[in-house]
Write a protein that binds this DNA or RNA. Structure first.
Lengths: 150, 150
DNA sequence: CTAGTTGCAAATGCTTTGCACAGGA
DNA sequence: TCCTGTGCAAAGCATTTGCAACTAG
């Protein structure tokens, strides 16, 4: 899978660092590692999960505050997106090139991604009809996953 | 508009009261008024707004806690739905018979509703493909409304 | 009577902010 | 050196919970 390619990560990281520099911000290990964790994750992570991953997989402690600040920056730069999971903390994921939706199981909170270009097009059309400039879209289907259908 | 019809409201209220009775719960003025405010609102309301409406339009004070509890019940009974507005309190609205999405302006936080059956069908199809039983769907398009496009 | 309900105060949990100190550029 | 970043502690804010008094059925 694309996201798991280590070489691709270094390209992403290099671009990211350049981006930070261009904005007259400072590159730090904290930002790099937070990006790294999101990059190599195959699921949507909460702040707490990011903190744990950093500790367990990379043996580095980064404060919750710093993670929040980094995520806020990454989201503003359109590098990541946040997702509201019912009744719990936000989840974060690296932006892929294509818009996509999520199926969230309200029992086990598992998240499945889906893509559908016909919906994407419809949405653009709808935004147009209402003279809206679309910046972002969230499409979430709540229900019960196969395993939770007791 | 349908929702504004007073006579229809009394039918809705009667059904609601029956529903409450059937569940061995108690009917109270608080529940009735909260339903009433949601029924006659033409926009999505936050808890704070509901509280104010109750006070201003109906001259009744209902505690924030009670409103939260009533809303939780109404949502569980599938009478209302909540909507996450970016970085602020949840908004509540009476369920209409048809699923629909929202366009939210990230500048002025105004909300426009839209309906599109082709998207609804696609969503059912997607849920099916993933062996998911759909209970609810949220579709939100974020962007800038006509007025906020400076 | 007796369970559900109300509403205050306090707790909770996620997120943000203030601030002193550390450290990139 | 300067200004951003880090991270602790504290604040903020929407929402929930504990609990005693209340009330609908």
């Amino acid at each position: 899978m694309y996201k798991k390619e280590v070489n691709n990560f270094y390209i992403t990281l290099k671009n990211f660092k350049q981006h930070i520099t261009n904005l007259n911000l400072k590159n730090t290990i904290q930002k790099d590692y937070i990006l790294k964790v999101l990059y190599f994750s195959n699921k949507h992570l909460t702040v707490e999960e990011i903190e744990t991953e950093l500790l367990v997989k990379h043996n580095i402690h980064i404060s919750t505050t710093t993670i929040y600040k980094a995520l806020k920056l990454l989201e503003k730069l359109n590098i990541i997106s946040s997702l509201e999971v019912l009744e719990s903390a936000k989840c974060y994921e690296l932006n892929s090139n294509l818009p996509h939706g999520h199926l969230i199981c309200t029992s086990c909170h598992s998240i499945i991604e889906f893509k559908d270009t016909s919906i994407d097009n419809k949405q653009l059309e709808i935004a147009n009809t209402h003279n809206f400039t679309l910046t972002n879209q969230v499409m979430t289907i709540y229900g019960h996953c196969q395993r939770c259908q007791n």
